[in-house]
């Protein structure tokens, strides 16, 4: 199986919850953001409190996921070498 590494950068407060500012995660070819998040939440179970991958609407309303400056969702395919930013979603005010 080929694949590669994606760097996940946590922003506050997810960095504090995870205990690290970023983490490298190995993905297989064809992996999606959803696949990566499942892996991520296994590594950092505390994040399941704030990153709700079981409900696409709630995930979109509460968390911003960006890969190389593009907004992505659970079904987006990832490529090795990409950076994924994860932060609470708030827009307005």
């Amino acid at each position: 199986m080929s694949g590669g590494i994606v760097k996940v950068k946590f922003y506050s407060p997810y960095d504090r919850l995870a205990g690290v500012p970023e983490v490298l995660i190995e993905i297989r070819d064809g992996a999606t953001v959803g696949d990566l998040l499942i892996k991520l939440l296994r590594m950092f179970p505390v994040l399941t409190k704030v990153i709700k991958i079981g409900d696409a609407e709630e995930l979109s309303a509460s968390t911003l996921l960006m890969a190389d400056e593009q907004v992505v969702s659970m079904g987006t395919m990832l490529s090795p070498g990409q950076d994924l930013k994860i932060m609470p979603f708030i827009l307005g005010g």
Partner: peptide
């Protein structure tokens, strides 16, 4: 309450990070 919990947690200022990431 559920849909607006980030506003409660971080205020509208929580949007600074979101907006910075989006280029907004």
């Amino acid at each position: 309450v559920n849909k607006t919990k980030n506003y409660r947690s971080f205020g509208t200022g929580g949007g600074v990070l979101t907006s910075a990431a989006l280029g907004d």
